[in-house]
């Protein structure tokens, strides 16, 4: 599969996951952790377009548990089923919990959850550090509170991209700030460059560029989908 397709698969999976998290009234932390898990899983497993919902479902189920915001499996399956039906334009009928279809979904989710746990080697606490709070404290240092909302949204967006598995959280946080500032046409201190405060100037500049590329790529994809 081409790298572009792989990216799109991740976008779709994380989008469905995020939508479900909102519908389930899950904390954003749970959603972010679930997305980070999904990206880690995608690093090793090739996911076809038909598996997107299944993987997103299992990751969200697990992420909610890790962040102590667990939801019954039935609720998670119901919400994902509704999202899928809406996407396909099918009538929004509730799943019949005694049906074979429901039993199969349940079985699939439980198995996938285990598979994800295995793939991650049960290392589940390493994605606890999300870029959000770093971005907020950096903006406080930079005295740019007006960028906080936009940077927060970018931080959420960054979890839709593979940034969380490729770059450290401090670099991702800086990327979010830079991206938010660009959109708001706010200039950031240039001399010395502001991000030298939060990232290593020697080694992390290319990573910072990488984060910005990923964010731009996501936004381009979304704009294109919006237009289509």
């Amino acid at each position: 599969m081409s790298s572009a397709t792989l990216h799109v698969i991740r976008y779709l999976a994380t989008q469905r996951l995020q939508t479900a998290a909102v519908l389930l009234k899950l904390s954003q932390t749970a959603a972010c952790t679930a997305q980070a898990i999904l990206h880690r899983f995608c690093e090793t497993q090739e996911i076809g377009e038909n598996d997107v919902s299944a993987v997103a479902r299992a990751c969200l189920y697990l992420g909610a548990k890790i962040e102590e915001d667990a939801r019954p499996l039935r609720e998670i399956i119901t919400v994902f089923d509704r999202i899928d039906k809406r996407r396909k334009g099918e009538p929004l009928e509730l799943l019949d919990y005694s049906s074979d279809e429901y039993a199969a979904l349940r079985h699939q989710t439980v198995e996938l959850e285990r598979e994800v746990l295995c793939e991650l080697g049960f290392h589940l606490h390493c994605e606890r550090e999300h870029p959000h709070k770093l971005a907020m404290s950096y903006l406080r240092v930079l005295e740019l509170p007006q960028l906080m909302q936009a940077a927060w949204s970018c931080a959420n967006d960054s979890l839709r991209t593979p940034c969380c598995v490729r770059y450290p959280a401090n670099v991702v946080a800086c990327g979010c700030i830079a991206f938010a500032a660009r959109h708001a046409a706010v200039s950031l201190p240039d001399d010395p460059p502001w991000w030298h405060l939060f990232c290593d100037p020697e080694t992390e500049e290319s990573s910072l560029h990488g984060v910005l590329m990923e964010l731009a790529r996501l936004h381009a994809w979304q704009a294109q989908r919006g237009a289509a």
């Binding site: 299944a54 996938l112 598979e115 295995c118 080697g121």
Partner: peptide, 11 residues
Amino acid sequence: MAGGASAASAA
């Protein structure tokens, strides 16, 4: 990989 996937193994 969905459905009947079996145990995966991870070092």
